[in-house]
Design a protein around this nucleic acid. Structure first.
Length: 606
DNA sequence: ATAGGGTTAG
């Protein structure tokens, strides 16, 4: 009956999407499992993984009575490729438990997983397996080991734990020198390791030593210089390289984006001879990250005309753009078009959905997505906690934080910012202090400027201005604008001119161009009817040539975003908008409220 | 081997 095999294998070979794969799989089930050779099973497993349908892959795998090494490896590799690193390591442990011997490719995959997670302990135990099975001479495995070390080398904690034994480039270099066969990848990996470790000089000299530099070598160098923020050097390499591919171009775009230089990023992007999905997601995510989500959305509309099929990463960038704009309708349109069953997608995507719902105003929908998610990691919890905090549900946020600790997830600095802000929004002063203490003492997390700003805000709002000021003075790091800003804002609320002056003096030194600080101080004086001082601040603004920060607002209507600045007359329907606004002001006045009427005259602000 | 992705105060 072997002749039956041919059509199936060609069917599988030409299978291009999840739907057709499912139908092939279903047909095979009906035809009878006799045709399920290990080779076909392997192919189906890999295809499910390619389409991101890991749960299908797992279901299929569970039905196999005695999976061989290749099937285990396919499942593990599929998880790694879909960034489900923890799961891949879990499956790997299961494989060892059942005494199935790993292949060198298996070890390669799990090495990558532990490298990506900076899990040096796992990496180390996998390396001991490499030695046990005598695979250490395989150049591919060696590259993965070097990659694992150099990637983990970025993690300070790992460095401390292993006390220089691991995570240093010395180990990687020694392995490199020992290698019997060095291909171009080995060289590139070494260069990239030095770059990750911040040793640009060593990377450059190794790059010069290379017997032959291919596009990859140049790209490794450019990517390193971009990450180090040395854009001039990166640009120089880019101009000098004999042959550029899409990755080279995209990397330059990304490099400028990382440095907040959207002008040059866009310039390179516009010059690209060829753009692919990665190029598009880079520039779109770049605009979103650099506070220009409107431009991101414009580019998304341009992207749609290219006919390129978006992938999960791309969708992620768009969803996070929508979160920033708060444009729920557009986001929902995108989700209904591209995201069918959230269980099929990565935790990152689920997290961005939670954030999106919360930022677009619906905590309940965010909670629904959160509760539906089968597994949750630290970032997922952090997002949900911050969402609850921003919606004033401080108590719920704190409860969720304790749930998280109960499920043995170790908190980091970010989640504590969420918890502290939950305390602030909920007026939970004591809890805030307890949480801060817990962070420092129980989890040995060094409080950052942001943590201090949260705590100052918490104390200040509650009226404990002196305590807040003492906290600032006790800080182990130099207090920056956010910390003094929180104190100044609290002084405004509680009309404390003395401390406001202290805070303002620091702020004027740190950010003399920020108009908000002058306005806040002047407001404190105005509340106390100290008009002479108000005049003094006003003249300071004139002398300092303070830049006026222009605020804008926007609204989404039928999936179109309309943006407005103060005194804006550019909108097509401006006259109607303003006449409605006038009516609204009349109404409010008739209710007996005094209102602030926006004008172009900045003096009116004070 | 080399390019894009989730959470962070006021």
């Amino acid at each position: 009956m072997r002749w039956m095999n041919k059509p199936i294998s060609s069917l599988l070979h030409n299978c291009e999407n999840l739907k057709s794969l499912k139908s092939i799989h279903a047909r095979l089930l009906i035809d009878g499992s006799i045709f399920f050779s290990d080779v076909f099973l392997n192919k189906i497993l890999r295809l499910y993984a390619n389409f991101g349908a890991l749960d299908h892959a797992r279901k299929l795998f569970e039905k196999i009575s005695q999976p061989n090494s290749f099937l285990w490896t396919a499942l593990i590799h599929g998880h790694v490729e879909n960034c489900l690193y923890d799961d891949s390591l879990l499956i790997f442990r299961l494989m060892l438990k059942q005494s199935v011997q790993p292949l060198s490719f298996t070890l390669l995959s799990v090495l990558k997983a532990s490298a990506r997670q900076s899990r040096i302990r796992d990496g180390e135990s996998i390396y001991s397996l490499v030695l046990k099975y005598g695979l250490e001479s395989d150049p591919m495995v060696q590259n993965a080991v070097i990659d694992m070390y150099s990637r983990c080398g970025e993690v300070d904690i790992a460095r401390q734990v292993f006390d220089g034994m691991f995570g240093n480039m010395g180990v990687a270099r020694a392995l490199f020198e020992q290698m019997s066969v060095r291909d171009s990848a080995s060289w590139n990996v070494m260069v990239s390791g030095y770059l990750d470790a911040g040793d640009l000089a060593a990377a450059s000299s190794l790059f010069d030593e290379m017997p032959k530099q291919d596009v990859g070598s140049w790209n490794v160098m450019i990517s390193g210089f971009c990450k180090a923020g040395k854009m001039n050097s990166a640009r120089e390499l880019f101009e000098r390289m004999p042959l550029r591919n899409v990755a080279s171009w995209t990397m330059m775009v990304d490099g400028y984006i990382r440095n907040g230089d959207m002008k040059n990023a866009r310039c390179i992007f516009d010059q690209m001879p060829k753009r692919n999905l990665v190029s598009w997601s880079t520039i779109i995510a770049g605009y979103a990250k650099n506070g220009q989500p409107n431009l991101a959305l414009d580019l998304f509309n341009q992207f749609k005309e290219t006919g390129i099929e978006p992938d999960e990463t791309f969708i992620l960038a768009i969803i996070s753009t929508c979160s920033q704009l708060g444009v729920l309708d557009i986001a929902k349109g995108i989700i209904s078009e591209y995201v069918q069953d959230i269980h099929l997608y990565s935790m990152q995507l689920v997290t961005s959905l939670i954030d999106m719902h919360a930022k677009c105003g619906s905590v309940d929908e965010a909670l629904q997505v959160f509760n539906e998610a089968s597994t949750k990691d630290l970032v997922c919890y952090s997002t949900m906690i911050a969402a609850l905090a921003n919606h004033g549900r401080g108590r719920d946020a704190i409860n969720l934080f304790y749930d998280m600790l109960q499920s043995d997830i170790k908190p980091d600095g970010v989640v504590f910012i969420g918890v502290l802000s939950a305390c602030t929004h909920g007026g939970l002063i004591n809890e805030g202090k307890i949480v801060f203490k817990m962070m420092v003492e129980d989890f040995s997390i060094k409080p950052s400027e942001r943590h201090y700003a949260c705590l100052v805000d918490l104390l200040g709002r509650a009226g404990y201005l002196e305590e807040a000021y003492e906290l600032i003075q006790s800080m182990s790091i130099e207090p920056h604008s956010a910390v003094w800003g929180a104190l100044l804002a609290a002084c405004r609320i509680h009309r404390n001119a003395n401390l406001a002056e202290v805070a303002a003096r620091h702020l004027f030194k740190i950010e003399p161009e920020n108009s908000g600080n002058y306005i806040l101080l002047s407001n404190v004086y105005a509340d106390l009817e100290r008009w002479d001082d108000v005049a003094k601040v006003r003249s300071m603004i004139r002398e300092q040539k303070v830049r006026k920060t222009r605020g804008s607002s926007w609204i989404e209507l039928d999936c179109v975003v309309h943006e407005f600045v103060m005194g804006d007359m550019s909108h097509f329907d401006s006259s109607i908008i303003y006449s409605v606004l006038d009516l609204l002001f009349e109404d409010v006045k008739n209710f007996g409220c005094s209102i602030y009427y926006p004008t172009d005259d900045a003096e009116r602000w004070i």
